[in-house]
Write a protein that binds this DNA or RNA. Structure first.
Length: 570
RNA sequence: UGCCUGGUGGUGUAAUGGUAGCACAGCAGAUUCUGACUCUGCUUGUCUAGGUUCGAGUCCUAGCCGGGCAGCCA
């Protein structure tokens, strides 16, 4: 098998974040570059996360650094272990053979880091903030808190609890932790500035009370830190140097820096940098919307091959290397763009063209009888497994009197420049020989029943007519030696490039995003291997469906069609 | 009418005061036992207006347009 070469094909990626890292390396600001990928376990990872994973792990591998996988699990109400398992599987798959050597896990384990690992130290830091007069316990209700916050163009008001004495704050916070108060009764807030133009500096909440069990820490805690408080300190505790996130966190950066500053921690401190998240045409990349598609049964599950989830893409047959190649090709900027799916499809085709074994299969068959081959006779022809890789070898193909060809490959009244089969016309059967169409047999209703043709057996490889020039070459399978299997033909899930432009993405669902046909396949495909890509020649790339295929009973998913310059025009 | 941030061909990106380049897509052609792959060529761009400068996509000013921010979500 030929492998993809996305790392060798492109120059080392360069972008504004890597420029910053390079500068920090040159100035020796850190002993080692350490990044992190911090998903919240409340959903499945998607192609947008792949961009972030490739960025963070890429920077680590280019700088002999480390990238920690960290589950950002500070909100037990929304999170679940189901998601933890899928996240680990997806990240492992995506970086395997590429950046697995820089994957940071908890020391001496195969466990990823968890923000919940730090609940203890985080509590201690909070006590310190209180002692410094930088945080206070607030008794305002959620509604009152919102009211006091003001609005972007209007300053907020100080909470009446803002100037509580340190001793009282300490006592109250300890009692919050001890479970003395119900959910929502009190919070711990940073004491910053209720008139700050940046809303996130208006005494942001640090801790809230939630009497729920956590999937990692059980019933140990009933107060849970909020993102802004937990994230910067988790970064600090892990020795993260470059904390890379998406643009919507930009307004949080002053708070990230503020918390670390107040604690007077030994330097160097981590720094946050933001980049634009991925938007991809003809799909949605948002956990919330993906969840909706799954829950409403619009797709079959998180790993539905039509979804841009990593598990869906994997099941569809998209190799991890194609995702990496794609990520490298789109770059990293602060410009909020919509990437053309063509860029993604190109990356997939680049990888698959090199990696896929060639096979013959017919999706929509027409029967074709070669009248000069006796019934019951089986000729054998040789087919190559990969035209650009002789080491991939050859295989025999059964060639018989009755075969199937693709219905698209015959037209009674063809348009100009159609160089497939037509009445009285000739075409080459790939790897076999040239045939001539003598007769079109129809039923009473006028539908084509079969084509009767003559084979020029001298035009087989090595024969006297082997080099006869014929414009068209089509694929085929033996009608008597083929096998049948379901082939799932996927198309884009949405009919428009920006399904969520008006916020009603579900009105643009493509009703034809999945068509299942019974394909006729060359017999060797009975033993198709899981995880292997196959190019059904002239049709596209296919792979075994990991969930539904059984040994000897293949089920194929179409990853992607081949580029098609003919039907695009016709 | 608050704050932050961004605008380079159809799309994604590069150019860090000095020839606007690359990839994708599109178009045309060559090649082809895959109308694929490969190869060749072509079309298309610096949001606007001023200013600084020998020279501006880049610096300055003003405007226009887009994104983000008012969860006890992340």
């Amino acid at each position: 098998m030929t492998v993809g070469t996305e790392e060798g094909a492109a120059p080392a990626p360069s972008d504004f974040i890597r420029d910053i890292v390079a500068r920090d390396v040159a100035e020796k600001r850190y002993p080692q570059i350490v990044t992190r990928f911090p998903p919240e376990p409340n959903g499945y990872l998607h192609i947008g996360h792949a961009k972030s994973i490739c960025l963070n792990f890429g920077i680590a591998r280019e700088n002999a650094g480390r990238c920690n996988l960290r589950l950002d699990d500070t909100n037990p109400v929304k999170e679940d272990v189901e998601y933890v398992a899928s996240i680990i599987a997806d990240v492992t798959w995506l970086i395997d053979g590429w950046a697995d050597q820089v994957l940071g896990l908890k020391p001496a384990t195969t466990e990823p880091y968890h923000a919940s690992d730090y609940f203890g130290p985080l509590y201690d830091f909070a006590v310190e903030l209180i002692k410094k007069g930088k945080a206070y316990v607030c008794d305002l209700s959620p509604e009152e808190t919102e009211k006091y916050r003001g609005a972007p163009d209007r300053p907020g008001q100080d909470s009446p609890f803002r100037n509580r004495p340190v001793a009282e704050n300490l006592d109250l916070f300890q009692r919050m932790k001890a479970g003395e108060f119900p959910d929502g009764a009190r919070t711990l807030r940073a004491k910053i500035d209720m008139a700050a133009p940046n809303m996130w500096l208006r005494d942001p909440l640090l801790y809230r009370i939630r009497h729920v069990e956590h999937h990692q820490t059980g019933a140990t805690w009933c107060i849970y830190p909020l993102y802004d408080y937990a994230h910067c300190l988790s970064d600090y505790l892990e020795g993260i140097t470059h904390s890379i996130c998406t643009l919507e966190f930009e307004v949080h950066r002053p708070l990230y820096d503020w918390i670390l500053e107040q604690l007077n921690l030994p330097r160097p401190l981590p720094h946050q940098y933001e980049f634009a998240k991925l938007n991809l045409g003809y799909t949605v990349v948002s956990k919330r919307k993906l969840l909706q598609l799954v829950q409403e049964g619009i797709v079959a599950g998180w790993d539905d091959p039509r979804l841009p989830t990593l598990s869906g893409l994997r099941r569809r047959g998209v190799p991890a290397s194609a995702l990496r190649r794609f990520a490298a090709s789109i770059g990293v900027t602060r410009y909020d763009s919509v990437t053309d799916v063509a860029l993604f499809e190109h990356a997939i085709r680049e990888e698959l063209n090199g990696a896929a074994l060639r096979r013959l299969a017919v999706l929509r068959p027409i029967k074709l009888v070669l009248t000069n081959i006796p019934a019951g006779e089986t000729l054998s022809v040789e087919a190559v497994n990969h035209p650009a890789d002789a080491a991939a070898g050859v295989r025999p193909l059964a060639f018989t009197r009755e075969i199937f060809i693709e219905s698209d490959d015959f037209m009674e009244v063809p348009p100009n420049k159609y160089f497939r089969l037509r009445p009285g016309g000739e075409v080459r059967l790939k790897y076999a020989c040239i045939i001539k169409c003598d007769e079109v047999v129809k039923d009473a209703a006028g539908a084509i029943v079969e084509l009767r043709c003559t084979a020029d057996l001298d035009s087989r490889k090595g024969g006297p007519n082997a080099d006869r020039k014929i414009k068209g070459t089509i694929h085929w399978v033996s009608a008597t030696a083929c096998i049948e299997a379901p082939a799932r033909l996927y198309d884009r899930l949405f009919t428009v490039a920006e399904p969520d432009a008006e916020g009603a993405f579900k009105t643009h669902i493509n009703p034809h995003s999945l068509e299942t046909v019974t394909a006729r396949l060359e017999a060797s495909l009975r033993d198709a291997q899981p995880g292997q890509s196959y190019q059904f020649e002239r049709l596209g790339y296919f792979t075994l469906d990991a969930a539904d295929a059984r040994p000897g009973q293949p089920v194929f998913n179409r990853t992607l069609t081949l580029k098609d310059a003919w039907t695009a025009k016709a």
